[in-house]
Nucleic acid binder design. Structure first.
Lengths: 335, 335
DNA sequence: ATGAAAGCGCTAACAA
DNA sequence: TTGTTAGCGCTTTCAT
């Protein structure tokens, strides 16, 4: 192992000067710098990050805890966050929480073991009742739709507005009886209930009286759950001409289910999702969706975290940022 | 910051004893252990991983470099590798190489900066000519189809056999004029050329004379490239009744392209892909594919890497492991 | 502009 | 079974 000492010896300078060169500090004569760089090259020197971390107390790494990296939405999110982090010279460690409240808390605890300078935590298991557990003296940023005005910076999607715009789009295209495929309604605040709110606002604004049978609750936001939601609607006589799905993954399953039942889309039923994941432009029919601007969310989350890490943020004040969105009209809504 | 020293003082023992308790070593009296654990709890002690890393020379973290985490295949692969790594108490840092040869080499170099104990490198940019660059004195495992018998352990998919089985399946279903949508043929050895070999073997075995116009080269393995491949075939008169696609992502684009052209699948053309990503069961029509057993590949890669890290592997001998596969028959091939 | 000394928190090796 | 010593490689501080 080649150390700074070795380089210093080879270059005929002190270890401190080598350190100054490595960290691109000023007050190093060009000729000295050249000598050092040459020695580093010759010896194939590499910094020992562990030693630097120990000394500085910083790791140059942030954690990202997501439910499942192999879900398209989280893949897109993770890619965007890595890109945003790279722009700040930060590495990203991805942890999977498998949608469990416990694992999300574990991620928080583990992270505090000084492994990362901060943590971006995408919560789906933790709910509003757990907000106090997030009151930690450690830089974190929350992503997700379940905890608002909590004790941490938070970036959320434009759930209400986006959902409302999506349903208004279905109405504009001619739908009048619009189903919503959404999450477990027993949870008090989650991505579903906010999107449900937007859904109802859109109906109300159009003077459409909401009917209970339009609601199809599902247990998880998966492809299979989408298929089963259609089955449920079919059992109720498929008395709808529009379906708003809580995520694109669910919507893709819904498209599949509608195909199973031979129901034309958008001919008989219009469909729209939420997230605008890459695959949505290529389903058959292609899926209309709400694009929440993943890059904006990623950039904002990383920026907020860096502010905390660098101590440039008021410990008592926490930001709640909601991103922009746009409705992407494709075949499934007759767009 | 609470250190081992603090805990030792609070528990009335030496730092070494605290260390022994933390690391669950033997030869600690139960009563002593209890005292230490109690003090740790009271002070809310957390290990300083940086200090431990510096001392032990191990980080407990491995790197995983993939082209793009937001491609379904790499999402599935990353999830499987994280699961396999977790079983060995290893964390995983994901880096994205964006399919470039340079970034893949960078990942290798950065990794050697002692950040990780080892690296799993999924290569698509590096080719056989670069094999020598991988001759590093550092634990690495290669994933991918471009470098075989190189200077590192390597896990690959059953490209030839899987492709052959896929095409044999199309033939068994009645296809006789079978296109292949594959990668740039100017590369001498890549995932495409191996799958091309399997494709040709299947044709030959069935006594079908191969025709040049059946080959549709694409520049990248994307959804859009699949759409464009169909456009190409349509311009040639769509004189095929089967299409073998080099990946499921490409095949999903091909399904989309065939829908654009109003070509019935599997009625007029049967389609099969490779990878069996989660979405393939839910496309319309659902996509037949070759399942390469992602979990096996992930487990094998992690096992090989751990062997290297622990020094239990001969430095001069490198393993080339090829996983199992099975053909998954769905609607797109009339299965 | 450069260097010397000290120490970050932990654990390997050895001692008691 | 428990404790002592030393030092991993780096950077902060202060001196020159």
């Amino acid at each position: 192992m080649v150390t700074i000492q070795d380089v210093a010896k080879a270059a005929g300078v002190s270890p401190m000067t080598v350190s100054n060169v490595i960290n691109e500090r000023e007050h190093v004569r060009d000729s000295t710098r050249a000598k050092v760089l040459d020695a580093m090259e010759r010896l194939d020197y590499r910094v020992n990050v562990a030693a630097r971390n120990l000394r500085t107390g910083r790791t140059g790494t942030i954690g990202l805890a997501v439910p499942e990296i192999d879900r398209p939405y989280y893949g897109v999110l993770a890619a965007a966050i890595m890109k945003a982090a790279e722009a700040k010279s930060l590495r990203v460690v991805v942890e999977q929480t498998e949608r469990s409240r416990e694992n999300e808390l574990d991620a928080l605890t583990l992270s505090r073991n000084r492994l990362y300078d901060g943590l971006i935590l995408s919560t789906v298991g933790l709910g509003p009742a757990d907000a106090d557990l997030l009151r930690v003296d450690y830089p974190i940023v929350l992503l997700g739709e379940r905890i608002f005005a909590g004790p941490a910076d938070h970036v959320a999607m434009p759930n209400v507005e986006g959902a409302r715009a999506a349903v208004e789009h279905l109405i504009a295209r001619g739908s009048r009886r619009i189903a919503i495929v959404e999450g477990d309604p027993t949870e008090d605040l989650n991505v579903s209930s906010l999107r449900n709110q937007g859904y109802r606002e859109a109906l109300a604004a159009a003077g459409i009286a909401f009917e209970d049978e339009w609601v199809v609750p599902i247990g998880e936001f998966s492809l299979e759950a989408g298929v089963q939601a259609v089955q449920r609607l079919a059992e109720r006589g498929m008395a709808v001409d529009g379906i708003f799905c809580v995520t694109d993954t669910v919507a893709t399953g819904v498209l599949r289910g509608l195909a199973d039942h031979g129901i034309p889309v958008p001919g008989q039923v219009r469909v729209i999702g939420f997230d605008d994941v890459p695959g949505s432009a290529y389903t058959v029919p292609s899926l209309s969706s709400v694009d929440p601007d993943h890059d904006f969310m990623a950039r904002t989350a990383v920026d907020l975290l860096v502010r905390r890490i660098e101590g440039n943020a008021d410990k008592a004040v926490h930001r709640d940022v909601i991103g922009p969105f746009r409705v992407v009209e494709r075949e499934s809504s007759g767009g």
